[in-house]
Computed example of a mutant assay.
Amino acid sequence: MAPHTEQLTRPAVRLRGLTRSFGDRRVLDGIDLDLPAGQFTALLGHSGSGKSTLLRALAGLDHTVRGSGELSAPERVSVVFQDSRLLPWQRVLDNVVLGLDGGDARDRGRAALDEVGLGGRERAWPGELSGGEAQRAALARSLVREPELLLADEPFGALDALTRIRMHRLLRELWQRHRPSVLLVTHDVDEAVVLADRVLVLQDGRIGLDLAVDHDRPRDAYRARLLTALGVTEDPA
């Protein structure tokens, strides 16, 4: 189910001329990008292409980026990393509500854990969770803050194939329910096509391909085009 048309006319993120260099190497080279509110976008690129750098800039974690124009994002931004980053000395519910204000914070935390399938695990320690469960807890921690923008930096990269499929389904369901804008950084072309409604390819510091995905169409056509944009050719079967 695609976001409503009227929602997509309202930009959640607007970048103009975003630049980031590491020494003499320019990783982001004057990027212009709009992310409509409620859209699920995936960002592909080779290792070192600047995907995570762009995500960190949007999250406000990198203050050395420069822009000739705008860098605007919503106030409520949540980030999910490849590592769940749960505090091992805090129980699961305490991790989920860490930093939350309000007397209903723990109730909201329990509701978020229920949504990701961890109801009843509130008092578990992070070390007692599987990798998939830990990422579910990380998703709950992000969603309990009701983000307008969810930034996900390869959140399923360390999971086994079957767990990754389950997490794909969960993330898509949670997005449909809450409708934040999502920017998913991934190396996996198939993951991008399965999850996102729009796929960007970062090339030489700029957006080299901006591809809208129609989930009713065969996936192979999108996959082939994205692999070509990444400079990858597959041997015929």
Rank of each mutant, 00 (worst) to 15 (best):
E128A: 15
D104E: 13
R141L: 06
A221M: 08
D29G: 00
D29I: 01
G117Y: 01
L171F: 15
L162D: 04
D107P: 01
V232H: 04
R106P: 14
D34W: 02
E122G: 01
H63Q: 00
P126V: 03
R223N: 01
S21H: 00
G131H: 06
D220A: 12
R121Q: 09
E122V: 06
E122S: 04
L61W: 07
R56K: 14
A73W: 12
L202N: 04
P88H: 05
A229K: 00
L93A: 08
G69P: 10
P180Y: 14
A237R: 15
A105S: 04
P218M: 10
V13G: 10
P126S: 01
A42L: 12
M1R: 09
E146T: 12
L184Y: 04
L44P: 14
P74Y: 12
G208I: 06
G17V: 00
L227F: 06
E128G: 15
H187S: 03
V96H: 15
F22C: 00
D101T: 14
S47P: 09
G117D: 06
V13D: 14
L44Q: 13
P218N: 10
V92C: 08
E146Y: 09
E148F: 11
A59E: 02
G119M: 08
L227G: 06
V77S: 10
R164F: 04
G99V: 11
V116P: 05
E173F: 08
I31F: 05
T64K: 07
V201F: 06
L113E: 05
G99A: 13
V199S: 11
L118P: 02
E115N: 02
G131T: 04
V189E: 09
G23Y: 01
A237Q: 13
R145T: 14
I31R: 07
D62F: 03
